[in-house]
Amino acid sequence: MDFSIIFGNLDIYLEGLKNTAILVSISLMIGLTLAIPLAVLRTSRNYLVAAPIRAFVYFFRGTPLLIQIFLIYYGLGQFEVFKASVLWPLFKEAYFCALLAFTLNTAAYTTEIIRGAIEGTPHGEVEAAKAAGMSKMLMFRRIILPSAFRRALPAYSNEIIFMLHGSSLASVITIIDITGAARIVNSRFYSPFEAFLTAAVFYLCITFAIIWLVNKLEFRWYAHLRPQDTGTADGGV
């Protein structure tokens, strides 16, 4: 194996790293922003409100991300009406299509994660909030969502990592992300081991960095659950 090829082409990988970072962080941010209201509405007892969100989540969780990307990037061009619309210049770009597919995909998964966390709220907390005369809005803002986020964090950290890994599919529609960079290096020098192992190392490092950050966040968010040093053996009870 000859890793000097990699050092000679490190700029391609750095370009890929930049694109992966942009794609993943933007889609995660927009996805999370969409998912919070969707999850709240999904818990609604009104069928007309909950059913469309259910269908959205069912579709995006039940089909491969690759198909979703293809449907948006290649699929929409089938419709002449759409091609004539003002949106077409956007949807012609692979970058935008990948971003849209990733965003909708992570929004669907995150909706389901937050919904589970909302439904896991202890009943007493909701009753107490109602008894204190909180409006529904206030109850969600002060009681349900903060504790739901705390419960959702472990599952959401998995979703972040899945999104990072899923973003490698962007390379299939010509985007130069980390995997795309590896594919270029491989086809240029016919050195699959060096090319793809380097990409693997990039992804491993990012994954470990994410896990480290989430652990730090968990440490902060679960501060109230840590055994507290009260100075007395019986905890001051």
Binding site: F196, Y203, L204
Partner: peptide
Amino acid sequence: RGIPDLVLMLLVFFG
């Protein structure tokens, strides 16, 4: 669990 499926698949296939 730290490496994307696609990267591993390309590694196995081409490598």
